[in-house]
Amino acid sequence: MRPIALLCLLALLPGPLLAAAELSVAAAANFAAPLRELASRFEAQQGGRLLISLGGTGQLYAQIRNGAPFEVLLAADGATPARLEREGLAVAGSRFTYATGQLVLWSARADLVDAQGLVLQGDGFQHLALANARLSPYGQASHALLARLDPQGRLQARLVEGQNIAQVQQFIASGNAELGLVAYSQVFVDGRLRTGSAWPVPQHLYPPLQQDAVLLRAGQPNPLAGEFLAFLRSPASQALIRRYGYRL
């Protein structure tokens, strides 16, 4: 076939045959590790490609309000997806809880954090990192935890805030903060601590970190969006999510 005739034939083919289908997913930073594995499995099964944007839930919400072309949101709370539904930016009835998170007090130093979190009562550190409560549900939970453990505000002068939970982890890993409050999935996998020392904070000490997914209006015409949300609820995906310490 001549090149010109071939080009004309390709122009008549439907879009999905010309390029692999893509899905734009905005996700809370705490879910980065399991989402990478989920994306790899989904792409292998479905043949499409996930375009992943990570950030604090508050940051992602602002981007969606300002017209960012995200098609699915995996938030770190339930309030933000519900708000997007009320505002007409998400598809009503598409919201569901895909995970419940857990806070961990973590240090990159192997000898700093004890099994009961008593390090917070001492003077063995200068900086305690946590996420911004205005932008991150994990930040809200962290501040609620400190209000309970430190009602006198003794630790306030030592606090260092990151915009999201990923930045908090960077502060600690780099040594800019000796310890801080991060998501369980950032430092544990299969129940094993990757590095450093940690105290998984008992979940009755802070508000539940219910994480909801929702189909955004921009994703409603994309078949891949519904397929990914169904995939997220499958037994195999749920088993993977549990490996990273989330409850379902």
Rank of each mutant, 00 (worst) to 15 (best):
G56K: 02
Q59H: 12
Q59L: 13
L60W: 06
Q63D: 13
I64S: 02
R65C: 14
R65D: 04
G67I: 15
A68H: 10
A68M: 14
P69D: 12
F70S: 12
V72I: 15
L74V: 01
T80I: 01
T80Q: 06
P81G: 11
A82F: 02
A82W: 02
R86H: 13
E87S: 12
V91W: 07
A92I: 01
G93C: 07
G93R: 00
S94A: 14
T97H: 09
Y98C: 05
Y98P: 00
A99S: 03
T100C: 08
T100N: 04
Q102W: 00
L103A: 03
V104Y: 00
S107P: 07
S107K: 00
S107M: 04
R109T: 09
D111G: 08
V113Y: 02
D114W: 03
D114C: 06
A115G: 02
G117Y: 02
V119E: 09
V119Y: 05
L120D: 02
Q121V: 06
Q121F: 03
Q121M: 08
G122P: 08
D123L: 02
G124L: 12
F125C: 06
L128R: 00
L128A: 03
L128D: 03
A129C: 09
A131M: 08
A131C: 10
N132L: 11
N132M: 11
N132I: 10
N132R: 15
A133W: 07
A133L: 00
L135D: 08
L135V: 00
S136R: 04
P137F: 11
Y138D: 10
Y138H: 11
Q140C: 06
A141D: 01
S142R: 08
H143A: 13
H143G: 00
H143L: 13
A144I: 15
A144W: 14
A144E: 15
A144G: 15
A144H: 14
L145C: 13
L145H: 11
L146E: 01
L146C: 12
R148H: 15
L149E: 09
Q152I: 10
Q152L: 15
Q152S: 14
Q152V: 10
Q152C: 10
R154I: 08
L155I: 12
L155Q: 08
Q156E: 13
Q156F: 03
Q156I: 07
L159I: 12
V160I: 15
E161C: 01
E161I: 02
Q163A: 13
I165F: 09
I165N: 04
V168M: 10
V168S: 02
Q169K: 15
Q170C: 09
Q170W: 04
I172Q: 03
I172Y: 00
I172D: 00
I172T: 00
A173P: 04
S174D: 15
G175C: 11
N176R: 15
N176Y: 07
A177G: 06
E178R: 05
E178I: 03
G180P: 10
Y184A: 01
Y184C: 02
V187K: 06
V187T: 10
F188K: 04
V189W: 03
G191Y: 08
G191V: 12
L193M: 11
R194L: 14
T195V: 14
